[in-house]
Computed example of a mutant assay.
Amino acid sequence: MLKLCRQYLNWIQNSVFEGEITEVKLKELVEKAKHIMDDETDSIIIFKSRQEKWLEKQVVGLEKNDLDTFL
């Protein structure tokens, strides 16, 4: 799953990824992920934002990725 998600998004920490992605690419990612996932134990949570100005990112502790902004 890590390799798949890194093809579409920026790795932040452990199982967290962020980035700007089109609806088509998101659907593609989700369909590919469904083939890897175990329906009994795994899940994906997707947060969407319509406007970047409503996002504020705060990191407490070690920043594991050097991205300055949330895309």
Rank of each mutant, 00 (worst) to 15 (best):
M1W: 09
M1V: 14
M1P: 09
L2G: 15
L2I: 10
L2D: 14
K3V: 08
K3R: 11
L4T: 09
L4M: 10
R6T: 09
R6M: 09
Q7L: 11
Y8T: 03
Y8W: 03
L9T: 04
L9G: 03
N10V: 06
W11D: 02
W11F: 08
W11C: 02
W11V: 02
I12R: 03
Q13Y: 06
N14M: 07
N14K: 09
V16Y: 04
V16M: 12
F17Q: 01
F17D: 00
E18T: 06
E18P: 00
G19A: 05
G19C: 05
E20Y: 07
E20L: 06
I21D: 00
T22P: 01
T22H: 05
V24M: 07
V24Y: 11
V24R: 11
V24W: 06
V24T: 14
L26F: 08
L26D: 03
L29Y: 04
V30K: 09
V30H: 03
E31C: 04
E31S: 13
K32G: 01
K32W: 00
A33M: 02
A33I: 00
A33V: 00
A33P: 00
K34H: 08
K34I: 02
I36G: 07
I36M: 13
M37K: 02
M37L: 14
M37H: 03
M37F: 11
D38K: 09
D38G: 01
D39P: 07
E40I: 06
T41Y: 10
T41K: 08
D42N: 06
S43W: 01
S43T: 03
S43L: 06
I44Y: 00
I45D: 04
I45Y: 05
I45L: 10
I45A: 05
F47S: 11
S49M: 02
S49K: 06
R50T: 07
R50L: 05
E52P: 01
E52D: 07
K53Y: 09
K53I: 12
K53S: 11
K53N: 10
W54H: 15
L55Y: 04
L55E: 12
L55S: 10
L55F: 05
E56H: 14
E56C: 12
K57A: 06
Q58V: 15
L62K: 15
L62G: 10
E63F: 07
E63A: 15
K64D: 13
K64F: 15
K64V: 11
K64L: 15
K64Y: 15
N65L: 10
N65I: 12
D66G: 06
D66C: 03
T69E: 15
F70C: 13
F70Q: 11
F70M: 14
L71K: 14
L71T: 13
